[in-house]
Nucleic acid binder design. Structure first.
Lengths: 234, 234
DNA sequence: GTATCGACCTGATTA
DNA sequence: CTAATCAGGTCGATA
C-alpha cells in the first residue's frame, strides 16, 4: 500500500481522505493523541455493486466481523442493532447479523438508507471506526472511490454528498450529545407476543469492543429449539 | 401420444426409455408385478430452459404437485425436504415448496446439482416415481429429449450422462440399503442447538403418497405466528 | 403498488 | 484437491 500524501486545505471545512493511514497521520498531526479524540479505524470495505444495489445489505468481511463485531452463538440468531455516528453526528442504526446459509456477516436494516443518503456507488469505500472510552462509540464514514489510496481514480466527477470527514467530527463528543453508542437487541417488532416466556433465560451476553453487554431475548424459543450441532462457532 | 415401441437390447446393461408407457410394459414383461419392484410412475415433465437454467428450481405442474406432494397449510411456509433415489441408488434431496408469488410448486435446493450432474438440458424429461410399500420411497430419473415419445428428435447427439434406467434399478431395494425414502422436515442447519423444549407442539402432519407423516419442527414459532390468513389452502 | 427487510441459496473464486 | 468465502441472487413478509 503506498502512503498517500494529501495536502489538506487550510480551511475550516477540511476535506479528509479517510484512508486509515492518512487518518492516523492527520489525527496525530492536527489534534494530538490526548484530545479525547481517539477514533480508531477498524476496517474499510470497498463497496461492491451488491453492497450498494437492491440487495439492501452490506457484507462485512468475516475477518473484520469476527474481530470487531463478535456475535456469540446465541446473539447470532437474530443479530444486533448497532448504532454508528457519521461525520455530522447523525446516528445510523444498522441491523447486524450472521447468515448461516452463506456463512456471512451482514448489515441489513438501515443500510440502504445510508447508501441512499450518502449516494454511495460501487467502488466507494465505507470505513468503520470506534472510539474506546467510557462506553464505546462506533462511527461510520465513507469516501469516494479514487480518493485516498484507491486503485481506480474514476474519471467521473461531480458526486457531491460523499463522505467528508472534518476535524470537527473528531470532537463530536459534545456535538452529538445523544449520539453515544447504542447497542441494542433487535427490537422485537416482528416477533411473537407470546415470546415472553418461551425463551426464558434468554438474555444474551455479548462482548463487543471489549465491553460485555446483555442483550435480551434475541432469539425466539422455537428458533433456539432446532439448532443443530453443526452451527458455527465463534 | 403415440406409443413408442422400443426394442430393448438383450444385454445386461439395459437402456430404458423411461416413458411411462414403456415403463409399465417393461415392468410387466420383464419382471412381473410381484417382484417387489412396483415403482409407479407419478409424472414426467419436459424441462424448460428455466428448469435447467440459473433459477435453480424446477416448477412442478400444479396438478401433479397437489396430487403427489400435497403440502398442508402449515408445511407450506418452509416446504419439505423430499428425498429421491436415482437409478444408481444415489439420494437426491430437494427442497419442495410452494411459492405464493407465482402460485407454483417448486423444487429448489438441490435441484441445480441434479441438473448439473445429469447434464440435463431443456427438452430433457424428468420422471418421478414412487414405490409404495413399507415406507414409501421416491425415485427420480430423466431421459434425453428425443428418446422415448418426445416430439423434438434433436439433431444434436453425444450427451453421455443422461438418465438410463436399467432393470437393476428396479431391484435396488438391496442395492441401496440406505436409500429408503427420506421424508424429512427441512434440516434446521442454521438454527440453535438449545432446541429442546422451546417449540413444543411444533411437529407437523403431512399426508404424502397416502401416508400420514409427522414432520418435526417445520416451522419456527415466529414463522407460524406471522403467517397470514392469505395462505393457500390445499 | 412500492420499497424495504429477513432469511435463504448458489456458483465462482480462492486459500 | 477440499473448504471457505462472498458477490449476487431468490422469495415472502412487512411497512
Amino acid at each position: 500500500m503506498p502512503a498517500n500524501h494529501f495536502v489538506y486545505p487550510t480551511q475550516q471545512a477540511w476535506i479528509w481522505d479517510t484512508t486509515m493511514e492518512s487518518y492516523h497521520r492527520h489525527q496525530s498531526q492536527q489534534l494530538g493523541e490526548g484530545m479525547n479524540c481517539e477514533k480508531e479505524p477498524m476496517f474499510e470495505k470497498p463497496l461492491t455493486p451488491s453492497d450498494v444495489g437492491k440487495l439492501n445489505r452490506l457484507v462485512i468481511p468475516k475477518q473484520y466481523a469476527e474481530k470487531y463485531f463478535p456475535l456469540d452463538a446465541e446473539a447470532g440468531e437474530k443479530g444486533l442493532l448497532l448504532s454508528f455516528e457519521d461525520e455530522n453526528g447523525k446516528i445510523w442504526r444498522f441491523r447486524y447479523s450472521y447468515w448461516t446459509s452463506s456463512q456471512s456477516y451482514v448489515l441489513t436494516k438501515g443500510w440502504s438508507r445510508f447508501v441512499k443518503e450518502k449516494q454511495l456507488d460501487a467502488g466507494d469505500v465505507v470505513i468503520f471506526l470506534r472510539r474506546r472510552g467510557n462506553g464505546d462509540r462506533l462511527f461510520v464514514g465513507s469516501r469516494r472511490r479514487g480518493s485516498g489510496q484507491d486503485s481506480i481514480t474514476a474519471g467521473s466527477a461531480a458526486q457531491p454528498p460523499a463522505m467528508h470527514w472534518n476535524p470537527a467530527f473528531c470532537q463530536s463528543t459534545s456535538l452529538a450529545s445523544s449520539s453515544y453508542l447504542y447497542l441494542n437487541s433487535i427490537p422485537q417488532e416482528e416477533q411473537s407476543s407470546e415470546a415472553t416466556e418461551a425463551g426464558t433465560g434468554n438474555s444474551k451476553k455479548l462482548r463487543l469492543f471489549g465491553v460485555n453487554l446483555e442483550c435480551g431475548h434475541l432469539i425466539t424459543g422455537s428458533q433456539v429449539m432446532s439448532r443443530k450441532a453443526s452451527g458455527h462457532q465463534l
